[in-house]
Design a protein around this nucleic acid. Structure first.
Length: 277
DNA sequence: AATGCCTGCAACCGCCCCGAA
DNA sequence: TTTCGGGGCGGTTGCAGGCAT
């Protein structure tokens, strides 16, 4: 038994919005606002539309300062890096671009970027091969970019970075893994504090680009190595990130130094890996 | 010029979350 | 504490325009 629909779909108009409807909605919202209730809004505004449809129309096309289409290469890169790190959290990704909507970013991804980056995925791996050993923390961060993993994710646009925290790590104790992201703004690296994030998560010491941009596809291929945080071995598998380190090493995609499998500034965090096979 | 296919995008659907009652 | 309902979000669909044949 499903929940009751928000409106009578047989009696409201559906499909593309006319310029008159747009004008009516825009005019009403500019004068009165939403009133905190989209469902009740259409009759007040004189529209024969579902409240949710009104909300969508306003948020995606009518509200001020909307920027549609015309994605730049840099934006594409950021979208891809974010998608690699947090998956299809379109609202979160769109939040990185003032004026862009989640729907627009999602459509852009589905129609253009997905193909573009899938086609380029092999060359991306080659790019990963150029990583120096000293950039191992980058790779570790990249390995945390698994959308499938139950995770908490903190973005700090001001600091040009983000923190990733597996959910059940949060349950145990706050120990965040910093995730460097490509952000449009040049900013100084600085540290998160416990008060700002509730953890000892720090930003990386420099502005970084996610170099492991084929992480999702590699994660699918790589399933026989499991990563553990020290002290949590054998616990809930859901917290652990899985991939084939050996394959990476064999193929030279990444140069890993086990002794440095620690995020650069995650304080007390330490990690190790083992083979499941 | 006509037809069919492909692509991009606007809009809808339905689920989940969260706050109010 | 539970229930209900609205908002938010990601996935999907359907249409229109462009392109190839």
């Amino acid at each position: 038994m499903g929940r009751a629909p928000c409106c009578d779909k047989s009696s409201v108009k559906r499909g593309p919005w006319s310029p008159e409807e747009d004008a009516t909605l825009k005019s009403y919202l500019e004068k009165h606002g939403t009133g905190g209730n989209w469902i009740a809004l259409p009759p007040k505004a004189g529209l024969n539309r579902c409240g949710k449809s009104c909300r969508l129309r306003w948020l995606n096309y009518l509200r001020p300062h909307i920027k549609l289409g015309g994605f730049t290469e840099e934006e594409d890169e950021i979208i891809y890096n974010l998608y690699s790190s947090i998956g299809s959290r379109w609202s979160l990704i769109a939040a990185q671009f003032p004026g862009r909507t989640d729907n627009d970013v999602k459509n852009h991804w589905n129609t253009k970027l997905k193909k573009k980056f899938l086609a380029a995925s092999s060359s991306t791996i080659v790019t990963g091969n150029t990583i120096s050993k000293t950039s191992c923390p980058d790779q570790f961060s990249a390995f945390t970019f698994q959308p499938q993993v139950d995770q908490a994710f903190f973005l700090d646009q001001k600091r040009n970075s983000a923190c990733f925290v597996p959910n059940n790590v949060l349950d145990l104790e706050p120990a965040a893994i910093p995730v460097p992201l490509t952000m449009p703004l040049e900013t100084e690296a600085s540290s998160y504090t416990e008060s700002s994030l509730g953890s000892n998560c720090n930003t990386p010491p420099f502005k970084e680009v996610s170099v492991f941009s084929s992480a999702p596809s590699l994660a699918e291929q790589n399933s026989h190595v499991q990563w553990y945080e020290n002290g949590h071995e054998g616990e809930d598998d859901g917290v652990f990130l899985e991939f084939v380190l050996e394959d990476l090493l064999n193929h030279g995609f990444a140069s890993l130094d086990k002794s440095s499998q620690v995020a650069p500034s995650s304080g007390n965090q330490d990690c190790s890996y083992s083979s499941k096979s």
